[in-house]
């Protein structure tokens, strides 16, 4: 029971990172029907931006009090903002002109953008794993015999707070309504006076900013980053988005947490070498038996 809880908590922590990345996949798919394969690399970019900002602030070790709040806050918001800008640029330069092209064209472009980002990051920070400063003090709290670290609280807390903010934004603001309208019917939305280009750019801004948050969170959690991390994490987050029902926000979050838990439990019960097999077997099962995903049918409205 004790180990079950420990694995569950670990799976939820891991899953919250997948969920944040999956949101970006699902938002972009919802609005322009594109699987943005460069999204995993935007996530890595987020950890690199956080690392660079912490470097500028001179934060190399554990921080306390106001320094922790200020430095971590700047790194978090800086990474989110820079990733958001990167996402907007990617959309403007690589995808916008292909918006009405056959679906394969932007898909291949997305893979190309992924290569460009990976290689740019390899040039930037080198091809080896880069240590990320352990800025967060890490006392553990014992709940029902299971040690939960402060890092895990922060990782999961930040992820859930970000997701709630996103839900409020999409369902409670004019821009959010424009996004939902564009996702439902782009032409009709345009006829109603919605600026499609602006709305799509905002979608990329928000989706990529969420990947930036995920990048910061993973850096703090693993104290290590690598230019190639986005490949594996991106594929798993994509699986999470499909499992939850691609295009569906709540589905992406649910899928992210489920994939994290599945990975954790597969490692525990089947052995480490089966964890990827379990995750991608779920992708195949979802595609075969429930292509619309777990929440795909109950919430027809996309974004």
């Amino acid at each position: 029971m004790h180990e079950f809880l420990a694995q569950l908590i670990n799976g939820i922590s891991l899953g919250s990172i997948y969920a944040l990345i999956a949101l970006g996949y699902t938002m972009v798919y919802g609005i322009i029907g594109l699987i943005n394969f460069a999204h995993g690399d935007v996530y890595t970019l987020g950890s690199f931006f956080s690392l660079a900002i912490l470097g500028l602030l001179g934060a190399t070790g554990e921080l306390h009090g106001p320094a922790l709040v200020i430095d971590a806050g700047l790194a978090l918001f800086g990474a989110a903002l820079l990733c958001g800008i990167a996402g907007v640029l990617i959309e403007r330069l690589a995808y916008r002109r292909l918006r009405n092209a056959p679906r394969l064209a932007p898909l291949i472009t997305a893979i190309g953008v992924s290569f460009i980002l990976e290689n740019a990051m390899q040039v930037w920070k080198g091809p080896s794993p880069v240590p990320f400063p352990a800025i967060l003090p890490n006392p553990a709290v014992t709940v029902a015999g299971v040690a939960i670290s402060l890092q895990q609280f922060v990782v999961v807390g930040l992820a859930i707070a970000t997701m709630l903010a996103l839900q409020l934004f999409v369902h409670g603001t004019r821009v959010g309504r424009a996004m939902r309208a564009t996702a439902q019917d782009r032409d009709a939305a345009q006829l109603m006076g919605i600026d499609i280009n602006k709305t799509i750019a905002i979608t990329f801004l928000i989706g990529s900013a969420l990947a930036g948050v995920a990048g910061f969170v993973s850096g703090v959690y693993y104290q290590s980053t690598w230019f190639f991390n986005g490949f594996g994490a991106g594929l798993k987050a994509f699986t999470a988005a499909v499992l939850g029902g691609i295009g569906n926000l709540a589905g992406a979050m649910l899928g992210g947490f489920l994939i994290g838990i599945v990975e954790s439990f597969a490692t525990w019960l089947l052995g480490g070498q089966w964890s990827n097999v379990a995750v991608f077997a779920i992708l195949i099962l979802a595609l075969v038996f429930r292509p619309s995903g777990l929440l795909g049918e109950t919430l027809p409205e996309k974004v």
């Binding site: 670990n10 190639f228 480490g272 089966w274 964890s275």
Partner: peptide, 17 residues
């Protein structure tokens, strides 16, 4: 005796076990 999967950076579930 456990084997690792490729392309992952999370080994915590293995280590909890």
């Amino acid at each position: 005796h456990d084997h690792l999967a490729q392309d992952t950076q999370d080994f915590k579930s293995l280590l909890i076990k």
